[in-house]
C-alpha cells in the first residue's frame, strides 16, 4: 500500500460519506442520479465476488464491505425512503442502464486477462465503473442547479480516480511484473470523463461563485 492508493481510497470513502450525509441528514437526493448509484451497486457486486474466497488484508475486506453496504443503502434510500424519494429528479434522470451495461458485458467477454468467470466479472466491473458516472454528469447538465454537497461528492469521486492513476504509476516503477493495461486504460477513460466537471469546479472555486455548468 502506497500513499497514493491510500489517498485514493480515503477520497472514495469521503465521497460516499458526503453523499450519505446529504441523504441521511438533509433527507434530500436532489441532483443525485439513481442510475449512477445503481450502476455502482452492480460494479461493486461484480468486482467483490471474491470477498469470501480471496483474502488480501483486513483493510481490503473491510473497505469492500463498506463500499458494498454504502452503495446498497444509497439506492435503498433513493428508492424506498419516502422523504428522500420525493426529492429525486426522476424526470431528468432518464439514462438507460443497458445502454452502458451491454457494451461493457461484450467488451469484458472479448478483452480480459483470463477467461474465467471471476476474471470476466472483475473486468466487466472495471469497464462499467469507467462509464457509471455518465448518468450523473448528464443529470448535472440538465438540472444545472448544483448544491455544494453534490458538487463535493463528484469532486471527491473524481479525486479518487486521479489518486489511483498516481498509485499505478508508483507501482509500475516499484513493483516487478506490475502491468495491467485493462485496469489502466479503463481507469484513464474514467478520469478523463471528469475533466470537464473539474474545469468548472475549479473555476467556481477560484471565483468564489456557486458551481454552474454551461448549457
Amino acid at each position: 500500500m502506497n500513499i497514493f492508493r491510500l489517498a485514493g481510497d480515503m477520497t472514495h470513502l469521503a465521497s460516499v460519506l458526503v453523499l450519505l450525509l446529504k441523504i441521511h441528514t438533509i433527507k434530500s437526493c436532489a441532483g443525485v442520479s439513481l442510475k449512477t448509484q445503481e450502476l455502482y451497486v452492480i460494479v461493486f457486486a461484480t468486482r467483490y465476488l471474491d470477498i469470501f474466497t480471496s483474502f488480501v488484508s483486513i483493510y481490503n475486506s473491510l473497505m469492500k464491505l463498506i463500499f458494498l453496504g454504502s452503495s446498497f443503502s444509497i439506492v435503498w434510500y433513493m428508492r424506498y425512503h419516502k422523504a428522500v424519494h420525493r426529492t429525486y429528479d426522476r424526470e431528468q434522470d432518464t439514462f438507460r442502464h443497458w445502454f452502458l451495461m451491454l457494451p461493457c458485458i461484450l467488451l469484458a467477454l472479448l478483452i480480459h486477462e483470463k477467461f474465467t468467470f471471476f476474471e470476466v466479472m472483475w473486468t466487466f466491473s472495471l469497464y462499467l465503473e469507467a462509464v457509471a458516472i455518465l448518468p450523473q454528469l448528464v443529470l448535472l447538465q440538465r438540472t444545472r442547479n448544483i448544491d455544494n454537497l453534490t458538487g463535493q461528492y463528484i469532486f471527491l469521486l473524481g479525486g479518487y480516480r486521479g489518486f489511483y492513476i498516481l498509485n499505478w504509476i508508483y507501482r509500475y516503477f516499484t513493483e516487478p511484473h506490475y502491468v495491467h493495461w485493462i485496469t489502466w486504460i479503463s481507469g484513464l477513460v474514467q478520469t478523463l470523463l471528469y475533466a470537464d466537471f473539474f474545469y468548472y469546479y475549479f473555476l467556481s472555486w477560484k471565483n468564489n461563485k456557486k458551481l454552474q455548468l454551461p448549457a
Partner: peptide
C-alpha cells in the same frame, strides 16, 4: 502471478 496483484486494489 501477474493478475494476482491487480486484485489487491479496490
Amino acid at each position: 502471478e501477474e493478475s494476482e496483484n491487480a486484485h489487491d486494489e479496490l
